[in-house]
Write a protein that binds this DNA or RNA. Sequence first.
DNA 1: ATTCACGCACTGGTATACCACTAACAGGGT
DNA 2: ACCCTGTTAGTGGTATACCAGTGCGTGAAT
Lengths: 214, 214
Amino acid sequence: MNSTIYEIMRNRILYMEYQPGQILNEKVLGEEFGISRSPVREVLNRLEWEQLVRIIPRTGSMVTEIEFSKIMNVFQVRFEIEPFESQLAGDRLGKIHLDILEDLKTTCDALIDNKNRKVLAEVDFAIREMIHDAAGNPVLKEVTERLYIQTFRLWYVVMDKGDWNEEVKSMAEEIGELSDLIVTKNTRQLGEVRRDRINKHFERLRQKFFNSAL
Amino acid sequence: MNSTIYEIMRNRILYMEYQPGQILNEKVLGEEFGISRSPVREVLNRLEWEQLVRIIPRTGSMVTEIEFSKIMNVFQVRFEIEPFESQLAGDRLGKIHLDILEDLKTTCDALIDNKNRKVLAEVDFAIREMIHDAAGNPVLKEVTERLYIQTFRLWYVVMDKGDWNEEVKSMAEEIGELSDLIVTKNTRQLGEVRRDRINKHFERLRQKFFNSAL
DNA sequence: ATTCACGCACTGGTATACCACTAACAGGGT
DNA sequence: ACCCTGTTAGTGGTATACCAGTGCGTGAAT
């Protein structure tokens, strides 16, 4: 299936196996996956729509650079829409989700002093997936996830530069906070808490990004 | 340019020249526009991820049906995100925009007792474009516009069934309200007012949709 | 006359061939 | 030695050819 190749390519970009600015060649990609240029182009078009590559005529598909100004725009929207989603999810979060969170907490704890960016990222994806399901609005899910992906790489590079344990601790805190709110059935606060989280997250990204003077 | 053909196709769907459920044929489209299937498929892919068609293997591209449940999901997001955009726009709305609104008001008034759905729709698009520009966040614009398009057709069919002048009057009211808030520099209320507008809009759509028992 | 089975024709999916364009390199002239 | 120009190679864009799958129509058998 084509969507498999799409996901492979997407992950390569997100996990920085393809560097920002790198030029991808349709013919080469086709040979690698054993398919012709037609389906490759389809995948590249989709990636372009997700703002992960920019197709440049007679040159190739350039993996998009990480532009802070653009990412600020995305965060401005996430900052508004994700708290809303959490608020929606509040009504439906229950015991099943507590179990999921407990598992994620375990995974998270195992990462202390044991740096593995990809696993930590997968924990984040899992939390998000849980919220999406609980919110029960597929349109909202699609929009939110698309925006998240556009900010993902910045987090991923910054993780490499800052204090690793601090990063893990922050994630563990988020999980704990979520669990607490579910246990105490204080789900109306979910929105506010999430807004706080994203705000802090963004602030950390901003600082580390400019400190490293990329 | 391909994007021209994309826009033509998109408009045909939005303005119901292609009926929901209608099957489009790649070869036929190619012949009509004097291009081959490759660029046609590119356009159809784009329309598919805009949720305007669904490509069905060995059958064709089906213009998506108007599903109320899906549209409810979209409205749930619009209801949250568009007031936010208006709020952002508030700081930058000024005299230039008042002039635009005045023009639109004139266009609108000319539509009383003179039914023309397309022109009224274009007025709506123009208002939205103004807000987008003032808000100054291209990401937000893209998301918002994409969602709007997904709800557009419902409005377009409902317009045909209800009281035309009521529809025009509602639009004129919206323009007036906007102008007033700009004049009195009461731009902080823009968000709330917009939320009200969308709410009423949705309520009208809901009622007329179920009355007509489509 | 009705029903079932076979084949044909039409679809989108994919591979391939061709094209227009550009950028880079090499060679010759100054 | 340097600059300018012509050619060539390589890109994405587009047209086309081929393929696999399916649904419908037709014809034959009961």
